[in-house]
Nucleic acid binder design. Sequence first.
DNA 1: TCTGGGGTCCTAGGACCC
DNA 2: TCTGGGGTCCTAGGACCC
Length: 418
Amino acid sequence: MPVFGLIDGNSFYCSCERAFKPSIQKKPVVVLSNNDGCSIARTAEAKALGVKMGEPYHVCKERPELSDVVWFSSNYVLYGDLSRRFYLSLAERLPKVEPYSIDEMFIDLSGFDDVAGLCALLRSEVMRVAKIPTCIGWGPTKTLAKLANAIAKKHTELNGLCDLTNEQTRKNWLDRLDIDEVWGLGKQNCAKLHKLGVRTIADFVALPPEHVQKLLSVVGKRLQLELKGQSCLSFADMETNKKSIATTKSFGRVVTQWKEMREVIATYATRAAEKLRAEGLQAGYLSVFIHTNRHSGDPYYSNQRGAVIEPTYDTAVLITESIRLLKPLWKNGYRYYKAGIILNDLSCLSNQSDLFSTYDKEKSGTLMQVLDDINARYGRGTLRPSSTALRPSWGARSAMRSPRYTTHLDEIVKARSW
DNA sequence: TCTGGGGTCCTAGGACCC
DNA sequence: TCTGGGGTCCTAGGACCC
């Protein structure tokens, strides 16, 4: 029988910040979203003080009881690098590790005699190598592993481990836990189920499957089977490619001029193209959106447009197409606050020139390779299209970003300051 | 002044085809 | 009076996740 495990980092972004700052080990720590907009990671101490997930920073700042909180702008370069170390320390000891997000991985624990002993070892290794405290849950399906992990996190007396392979143990928990603990049952679905009087996970599991499918589609039906111990979600094939690549960001200040918006879109398209090439992919569908801020009281306007394009990974082509899509979206007089580019219909790139191609793919490939090589060596933005901005005035704020300790030599930890 | 960014999967409905 | 049906592809939008 397969055993699925889920390991995840506790308050991952905060733990990354703590890894290089012993002075904040016991302090309440919060990491903020892009643009220092709202809270996205909180330590237990910060949660105890009442900092909510997604709470705006400008509101938190005014609360006197939060004066001791240590705030950080997000530092994705640092978190990404520690996530890589986290992954490597697991991959060294396990046959299959499937990263699910930056801070959690599914692991294959099938066939081990002492799973609890192994998991305790994995936790201490991740702590040693990446300085990240973790929890591990496991069971016969992914959904149960995820649930076990949530239990381990909440119940500190379990020492970070929770085993749901035993049917009786499982039943005890399912009787006690509310349906909103289930991975995949969100607000809307829980509301539907509450209307039917379904409260606990055991209640949900007891519903007739046809009934569940009618209410929650095949997703709900699958969830129910998974909770019963019948595995429907297998380990993902690591070869499977991404379905979409996006660069969507709010600005550090509102944008009101067409000239600036054109620069935004060119910059985002350039970044999206870099991500695309880093994955060895090309895109066959491109969409662009812009909107104003719906919270600010400004007149709200939001629009989006997409188009099928000849599959490409070429920055210049993607910029041209993006600007073409942007033109009909633009309306003078609005205070724009966010824009984005989304690439879809991704396929592995081929260098063979298409018979009907309107541009020279071989030449484009060479040029992009040179561009990426130079930027890899000398830093992103060393070589860039003239329509883009390197440090634009509309760029995001991140006043409280910690040093990128592990990836930038000039930002390395100082053992002693002179 | 100030409320994230980047993903996945599923469904419905229109266009088009024979 | 009676005016097909079934299939595919594309796109938009909803719900969910971290």
